[in-house]
Simulated assay, not measured.
Amino acid sequence: MMTPSIAAAEFHRKVPFAQVAQFAGIQCIFEHVERSRNIHIIDLGIRCGQQWTILMHALSSKKRCRIKRLKITAVTTLAKGPIEEIGERLVGFAQTMNLHCCFEVIAVRDFAELNRAHFTLVPGEAVAVFAEHVVSTLTEPSNRLDSLVRAVRSLNPRVMVVTEVEGNQNSVAFVSRFVETLFFASACLGGQDEPLRGFAESTLMGEGSKIVLAIEGPERIIRNMKVDVWRTYFQRFGMAEAKLSSSSLYQAELVAKRLPSWSPCTVGMDGKSLIVGWKGMPIKSVTAWKF
């Protein structure tokens, strides 16, 4: 979702998965950059950008080592105009937190085109990368994701946080993909009221399910896989998985328990990673990586 809407905001408020994963991921980033006075966040596919208000709150509450500058660089394959509007909103919000924030947009035709030259880096700044539902769209052909990881590595980030759908929806067998997608969609939508369910089915789940089920070969642009698959992939590049802290788990649990209607939302660890689920069905994974 690139533009705010009443339906999107309501879905984000009532369905906990995105918020739970974002709070855990942003807490992880905060822990890796909090001692720095210049912080540079690189967001690969920023969407509405509301996740960075979480980081701004955390930074503004620091009593020691107040930051000099927070920079957010949004990488997009879409038009720059809507992303620049998101940046204006975030800069305005940062001002209410007494934070100096600047925003930059990098527009490319494909994430595979990214390289170090695209980024404006300042010596000594702490760089962190946030990738929410990006890597699963870059697996075909495989060199696209390889190119992105090499570009990220060249930036020498303190940490890279990756959030993905925790599902095995990449089987070559249609029946297996169908069953996995059916259970996943049922878990995501089962408890929603009718207007919200209609929005989620048509806007959020419908198109993704169509891509997963109806398209074969390289044209299938979304390939949702389990966290173990991503572990194997990232380790090929010398990336070491960093354990999400007890504070990240606490933040996730705190958000998950915020409303009584969220009681079926589960939060747990799979090794060093955090898994968000619904009535025991895994929905999202949050992993942290260091080079």
Rank of each mutant, 00 (worst) to 15 (best):
I26H: 09
R13V: 01
Q22P: 00
H40C: 02
I41P: 04
R13K: 14
N38V: 10
R35K: 14
H12E: 13
A21W: 04
V20T: 13
E31H: 06
I41C: 10
H12C: 04
Q19E: 11
Q19C: 04
F11D: 02
K14N: 12
I42T: 05
K14C: 07
S36R: 04
Q19G: 13
I29K: 11
C28G: 01
K14A: 06
I41L: 14
Q22A: 15
R13E: 05
Q19L: 08
F17T: 06
F23M: 07
H12M: 10
I39S: 06
F11N: 04
P16F: 03
I39Y: 07
V33T: 12
R35C: 07
V33F: 10
I26R: 09
H32G: 00
E31M: 03
A21P: 05
V20D: 10
F17R: 00
V20Y: 11
A24N: 09
V15I: 07
F30H: 14
H40G: 02
Q27N: 14
A21H: 04
A24I: 07
G25S: 13
C28Q: 13
F23H: 15
H12T: 12
A18V: 08
R37Q: 14
Q19A: 15
D43Q: 01
I29H: 12
F30Q: 09
R37W: 01
Q27P: 09
K14Q: 12
A21R: 02
H40Y: 07
R35D: 15
F30V: 05
Q22F: 11
Q22K: 11
N38E: 14
S36M: 01
F17D: 03
V20M: 10
F17V: 01
R37E: 14
G25D: 10
I39T: 04
Q27L: 07
S36E: 09
I42A: 05
R13C: 01
A24D: 07
E31L: 02
R37K: 13
Q19R: 15
H12N: 13
S36V: 00
N38T: 12
S36W: 08
E31Q: 11
D43G: 01
A24G: 10
I42R: 02
I26P: 07
F11Q: 06
S36D: 13
F17A: 06
G25K: 08
R35G: 12
H40W: 04
V33C: 09
S36Y: 15
F23G: 01
C28K: 11
S36A: 15
I29P: 12
I41A: 04
N38P: 00
R35V: 02
I42F: 04
I39N: 06
F23V: 13
H12W: 08
V20Q: 09
V15L: 10
V15D: 01
A24W: 09
A21D: 06
F11P: 00
S36T: 04
F11I: 00
N38D: 15
F30M: 09
E31F: 07
K14D: 09
I41Q: 03
V20K: 05
E34D: 07
C28P: 00
P16D: 03
I26C: 08
R37I: 00
R37D: 12
A21I: 01
I39E: 05
A24Y: 09
G25I: 07
I42N: 03
I26F: 12
A21C: 08
F30Y: 15
